[in-house]
Design a binder for these strands. Structure first.
Length: 301
DNA sequence: GTCCATGTTCTTTA
DNA sequence: CTAAAGAACATGGA
């Protein structure tokens, strides 16, 4: 479930708790969710020694890059947590039993930064669970540069830069917006919602967009993401905040998973098509596919 | 049994 | 070479 708003919500929930905490125990139950340097798991590479790398380290910051939760450690290493489709990161004090759920692949035990004041109630567990196992825990060593095949953050991207990046691809607009190298953090839900707000058809050829249209689109993306963050993301099925709560933004969707139901703007039924292998929802009336003005010679009169 | 799912990467094809 | 389309990954719910 995790697109940018869900990941941002996780980060905001964890930020008050994690900085300054020391990892006292590491329980890596499935090594295939851990990798080093990049997202991919190479089958031949030696597995990352997450236990050795993490135990004893203190967490400095919790931030977000695209759809990744970024934990920085006191030795300069970073841990990127990507939730995939069904990943959940849960924070729980020790008095609630550590997550007995299936599919818990990593369990970190955290103690307070100052051992002299160690109280049992200060101990907490951070667990990563992910039934489908599309998620990853990526370890970046202190000397490893940030892997960056990732495009710019939508919330800080400028209209000019967005226009330049977007209009040089000929793929359908929706496919372009899902490309994390072009713009990082959008997924299937928020692309559909942003396109509806911008009143643009998912199949629009990006080169046909004017500067005004790309500016409107960027504003729609930023508005949609900001509102979704305010509601702590969308819970369709699996997504939970680190406290176990559901997000609330699914109540505000205009098109996603609303095919057949009336458009909130014009009452026409929302349509669903398949585009780039992904289900795609839009309003045929609010988001007409602007026919590129055909370049035909004026008829002689 | 079938189809579908909030994501990314790899392979194939043009 | 690039770009686009499709498959693969793994699990569970309707």
């Amino acid at each position: 479930m995790p697109e940018l708003p869900e990941v941002e919500s996780v980060v905001r929930a964890l930020a008050p708790h994690l900085p300054g905490r020391t990892i006292t125990a590491v329980d890596l139950r499935r090594t295939d969710i851990a990798c080093e340097g990049r997202f991919r798991r190479s089958k031949s590479a030696t597995p990352v020694d997450l236990v050795g790398r993490l135990r004893g380290r203190t967490l400095l910051t919790v931030t977000r890059r695209a759809k990744r939760i970024v934990l920085t450690l006191d030795d300069g290493a970073r841990l990127h947590i990507h939730l995939g489709m069904t990943g959940v990161l849960t924070y729980a004090p020790a008095d609630t039993p550590p997550n007995p759920a299936k599919h818990t692949h990593l369990l970190l035990t955290l103690s307070p930064p100052t051992p002299p004041s160690l109280r049992i109630s200060d101990i907490a567990h951070l667990t990563f669970q992910d039934p489908r196992r599309f998620g990853r825990v990526i370890y970046l060593s202190p000397t490893c540069p940030d892997d960056d095949d990732l495009g710019p953050e939508p919330l800080t991207l400028t209209p000019d830069a967005f226009h330049a990046r977007l209009t040089r691809t000929k793929r359908p607009l929706k496919s372009a917006l899902l490309d994390q190298r072009l713009i990082a953090g959008l997924g299937n839900i928020y692309v559909d919602e942003s396109l509806h707000r911008a009143r643009l058809h998912p199949l629009t050829p990006p080169p046909s967009l004017t500067e005004g249209q790309t500016k409107t689109l960027l504003e729609s993306i930023q508005h949609t993401l900001t509102q979704a963050i305010a509601h702590r993301g969308s819970t369709l099925r699996d997504y939970r905040t680190p406290d176990g709560d559901e997000g609330g933004y699914q109540q505000h969707h205009h098109v996603y998973a609303r095919d057949g139901r009336p458009c909130r703007s014009c009452d026409k039924p929302i349509e669903r098509i398949t585009l780039g292998g992904r289900s795609t929802h839009f309003c045929p009336k609010c988001q007409p596919l602007a026919r590129r003005p055909r370049n035909r010679t004026p008829k002689r009169k």
